[in-house]
């Protein structure tokens, strides 16, 4: 049996294709093991060294990580929803109902997307509270706090733009009220409302704009900001130390 496994593993790892992907042999030294993490594009986000204190669950409650996990879940559930959802005033509500009642696993995907979105707002807020209460925003992490504030705004923006897409009464009036709030901004308010909903009232223009913001503009901005956020955690010396 062990002989078969040995032959099989040699068959898989001994050929040219495998060796073109994984150039080095499996590392045996500790230095080699940390380098294999450090030099891998997918794994290099992990620090080479981790302080034992920083791993204590009650210090971070994994809130940043959970927020990121929920963001990934939102992308994984959101992209399939795009195959059925049609952002037009005639079809939006119907395609949302189709996802709930006609499409296989549509209800599951839509509800996962919805609940993950609610949860992400909560975990992002709690993550910010944790960073504040542990004083982790202090030098040298001030800039990463600012990046985090932008990410909070993007999370709320994604939440708000997604709110309109079911095109039901709740969505319509929520966006009517929300964009009216935006129009109270001095001087620029009315123009901002006009350009945000693409007209004077919430209609086809608003639905399409919110759809594009929700599925392209804001997720892309969030991914770029997250890359900067995670990179800065490493460059600022890992997550902050418990006192």
């Amino acid at each position: 049996m062990t002989e078969i496994i040995r032959l099989l593993s040699r068959f898989i790892t001994g050929n040219r294709v495998w060796k073109s992907v994984f150039r080095a042999e499996s590392p045996v030294t500790e230095r080699g093991q940390s380098e294999s993490i450090f030099h891998n594009v997918w794994l290099h986000i992990y620090p080479v060294k981790v302080r034992k204190d920083a791993l204590r669950f009650t210090y971070t409650f994994c809130l940043g990580g959970v927020s990121f996990l929920l963001f990934l879940l939102l992308i994984i559930t959101g992209v399939p929803l795009m195959f059925y959802y049609v952002p037009s005033v005639e079809q939006a509500y119907g395609s949302m109902k189709d996802l709930e009642f006609v499409v296989s696993y549509g209800l599951l995907l839509r509800n996962m997307h919805r609940w993950a979105a609610h949860a992400m707002v909560i975990t992002v807020f709690l993550h910010m509270a944790r960073v504040f209460y542990t004083g982790s925003y202090k030098s040298p992490r001030e800039f990463n706090w600012v990046v985090g504030v932008f990410l909070l705004a993007l999370t709320l923006g994604l939440s708000f733009t997604g709110y309109l897409l079911p095109w039901d009464q709740l969505a319509f009036w929520a966006i009517t009220v929300g964009t009216s709030i935006a129009s109270y901004v001095p001087w620029l308010g009315p123009s901002f409302k006009y350009v945000l909903i693409g007209g004077n009232e919430v209609g086809q223009g608003a639905l399409l704009r919110f759809y594009v913001l929700h599925t392209v503009v804001l997720p892309l901005a969030a991914v770029l900001m997250m890359a900067a956020h995670f990179w800065r955690i490493r460059k600022d010396g890992g997550i902050s130390k418990p006192l």
């Binding site: 123009s191 006009y194 350009v195 693409g198 007209g199 004077n200 009232e201 209609g203 086809q204 223009g205």
Partner: peptide, 9 residues
């Protein structure tokens, strides 16, 4: 470009 000139309201 983002400010529409014609509206279908």
């Amino acid at each position: 470009f983002l400010f529409p000139n014609v509206l279908f309201e």
